[in-house]
């Protein structure tokens, strides 16, 4: 690896920029690929390896190349320091998500209820605006309160977050859809919200609901659905 390549790769990693190192296996020629850069077969391979976070070899013009992706860390923003969040935060942290719990209600967002978890008591949309909300980020709203959930969902819908989930019944979600449509969000965008949140596993209680949410987020991350 040439010095310039190494320095750029390390700079990208330090800055949290997704990057793919393409290496020609016949002579070691290397290219660093960022999103939406490079000629079609390279850009496509780079996008695929970043999306699924998995190195792979591809043959391009008769040469075999290894595409090795470096993605920024996974992040989960939980809006609502509620009972389910008390299970979801540690489960997600164990699954190597960088977890932040956001809730302006200080009686909920306490260190005693969330030991070792990053807490933010700013208003959800204001809080989210200060964090990295990229294609490796997930947002889950759990407050049941439109005053808190809706601004967070709007911020998430404006981002590239790979997973957006909202707690609440189908009827609650129908009302939410109307409110977001009223704010100018089109149907395609609103459809990015997974609601009712989580896989249907017959979950009973906060811990099982947390597992169903995390399972759905991981499934979307790894398989796209």
């Amino acid at each position: 690896m040439e010095r310039a390549t190494r320095e750029q790769l390390l700079a990208d990693r330090a800055a949290g920029r997704p990057v793919v190192l393409a290496t020609a296996l016949d002579n070691g020629e290397q290219r660093l690929l960022h999103r939406d850069e490079g000629a079609a077969p390279f850009a496509e391979a780079a996008a695929a390896t970043l999306r699924f976070d998995r190195a792979e070899t591809r043959e391009i013009d008769g040469r075999r190349w290894l595409f090795n992706p470096w993605n920024p860390p996974l992040r989960l923003y939980i809006v609502g320091a509620v009972h389910i969040a008390q299970s979801l935060a540690p489960l997600a942290a164990h699954t190597e998500f960088n977890v932040t719990v956001i809730d302006p209600r200080r009686t909920f967002a306490t260190a005693a209820r969330f030991p070792g978890v990053a807490l933010d008591t700013a208003w959800p949309d204001e809080a989210l605006a200060t964090y990295t909300l990229d294609s490796r980020s997930a947002v889950v709203t759990l407050t049941h309160d439109p005053k808190l959930d809706d601004p967070a969902l709007a911020a998430a819908l404006e981002s590239e977050a790979f997973y957006i989930g909202a707690l609440g019944s189908r009827r609650t979600h129908a009302g939410r859809r109307e409110r977001l449509a009223g704010q100018g969000f089109g149907e395609d965008r609103i459809n990015r919200i997974h609601a009712p949140v989580g896989f249907s596993i017959g979950a009973r209680g906060p811990a099982e609901i947390a597992i169903s949410i995390l399972a759905e987020a991981i499934s979307v991350l790894r398989t796209g659905q």
């Binding site: 990693r13 330090a14 949290g16 860390p73 190597e96 964090y131």
Partner: peptide, 10 residues
């Protein structure tokens, strides 16, 4: 500081 640090793991 609100920037998350690099991910965990080896």
């Amino acid at each position: 500081a609100k920037t998350n640090t690099a991910g965990p793991g080896p």
